[in-house]
Design a protein around this nucleic acid. Structure first.
Length: 440
DNA sequence: CTGGGGAGGGGGCCC
DNA sequence: GGGGCCCCCTCCCCA
């Protein structure tokens, strides 16, 4: 006979003991703030503590003290509250740090939930953008989703699916039922978890990453490839099956603790964890990459999440970085390079002209123009400037066009590649008027 | 098949 | 922290 409330009751009791500092035999110091806890609970919840306390098992008479500087007390509060309640309080503000801390502490279930949270946030973001761009989309749902979600890792007996996943849309739910603590000991038990790594994986870049990160990683597939690239990768080596992807996650989970491997500002006072490396670096929860700045980590994370918040208003191609969009726009749509596309010679407004082919622009020298028998066609530079000039506002609305401008945009886009438009360009003037895509 | 060039993408770092 | 520049690498196309 099994009493279903026993587990939750037991956890509640332990939580009460923690709050009242009863039987607490472990102190965790986080940036000067002391957290009391039970080593049994920490051992059962975190791979990191398991390793730490295992080494300390022969000295059980001594209270264990651990010090962390890799994350804030607030973050550790979230983690500890989860350990003792199964409830994870995630917000858009803390999710990265909680995930980083969970990675450090080898709490794979927390990492999974954070990943799901981030992914869901991105989904929402994408939906909102799509809705914004699509005037006809009246059926968009999931409005007003609370970005701060409360994840309840249950000890509930009735949780049938041990790996059910939540999204912020769902609000509250169960992480992994009564067996959540098992993950910490046996990360491989996540093999069957339906946890997507991310909505959009970066294109296959394993070779490069291997070089940079000194870690072999399976190829990854982006969903934003150009058609040809997509066709090639989707049916060849670029394709990664769900199981392979999961295997990657498992490999990642099986890897040594972040702090142990990279220093990451951690310090365990009573134990001898190496800490030679620079402190206060930001560790990517998806890969071994470490950056110095949080902003760089945020940028780096986009290559895992596939988030591409910067669409080119001229061709629709999306970019994960504004500078990449700018570069793309200058190169593709502005013909900034003063080089003849055919003969590669340097051209100026006197020796060559800008050719417009659909939304693409490039320069041809007069000789090549004559060779191809293309006559100059007038182009409304003013309109072009209006078309390309971003308006004020947030990053999504910067490119929004007035109705007239929008019309001209559509016309140009629909020009197709067959029609070539020659534009007289004064280089000096163009530089002054330089069009800034998506830029303030 | 191969090499060159274009384009995209990632990291470091400065402002 | 965001924007932007520079550098480097990879992929892809094309001659």
């Amino acid at each position: 006979m099994e009493i279903s409330s026993h587990q939750s009751h037991l956890l509640q009791q332990l939580n009460e003991q923690r709050r009242q500092d009863v039987f607490c035999d472990c102190s965790i110091l986080v940036e000067g703030k002391v957290f009391k806890a039970h080593r049994n609970v920490l051992f059962a919840s975190s791979g990191y503590f398991k390793m730490l306390l295992s080494q300390n098992s022969k000295e059980t008479s001594q209270p264990t003290t651990a010090t962390f500087q890799a994350f804030s007390p607030d973050t550790f509060t979230v983690i500890l509250d989860f350990v003792y309640s199964g409830k994870l309080s995630l917000t858009g503000q803390n999710v990265i740090e909680v995930m980083s801390a969970a990675s450090f502490l080898q709490m794979t279930d927390v990492i999974s939930v954070c990943k799901t949270f981030i992914k869901s946030s991105l989904d929402i973001s994408e939906k909102e953008k799509d809705r914004y761009f699509s005037l006809s989309d009246k059926d968009a749902n999931s409005n007003g989703v609370e970005r701060s979600s409360f994840y309840s890792g249950g000890w509930q007996e009735g949780s049938s699916s041990p790996h059910s996943h939540l999204s912020p849309e769902q609000g509250t739910g169960i992480i992994s039922g009564k067996s959540w603590n098992k993950y910490n000991f046996h990360p491989a038990s996540q093999k069957n978890t339906q946890q997507p790594l991310a909505k959009h994986e970066p294109r296959k870049e394993s070779i490069k990453k291997t070089k940079h990160l000194r870690l072999s990683q399976p190829s990854e597939v982006t969903h934003y490839k150009s058609s040809k690239r997509e066709a090639r990768t989707s049916d060849s080596s670029g394709h990664v099956s769900q199981s392979e992807e999961q295997a990657q996650i498992d490999a990642e989970m099986d890897s040594p603790p972040v702090g142990y491997q990279y220093g990451q500002g951690s310090d365990v006072t009573s134990k001898s964890f190496p800490d030679d490396l620079p402190r206060m670096r930001f560790k990517c929860p998806y890969c071994p990459h470490v950056v110095k700045r949080k902003a760089d980590l945020k940028r780096h994370l986009r290559c895992h999440t596939g988030e591409r918040p910067y669409p080119c208003q001229a061709c629709g191609k999306r970019f994960g970085r504004l500078d990449h969009l700018s570069s793309h726009f200058r190169t593709i749509h502005q013909a900034c390079k003063l080089i003849c596309r055919k003969c590669k010679r340097h051209v100026t407004d006197l020796t060559g002209q800008v050719v417009q082919e659909g939304t693409r622009r490039y320069r041809l020298c007069n000789e090549c123009l004559a060779e191809f028998g293309i006559d100059s066609l007038p182009i409304d530079l003013e309109a072009e400037q209006h078309l390309m000039s971003p308006s004020d506002g947030d990053k999504d609305s910067r490119w929004h066009l007035s109705e007239d401008e929008n019309r001209s945009y559509v016309e140009i886009v629909e020009d197709g590649s067959a029609d070539l438009v020659i534009q007289q360009v004064d280089d000096s003037e163009e530089e002054e008027k330089e069009i800034k895509p998506n830029i303030r």
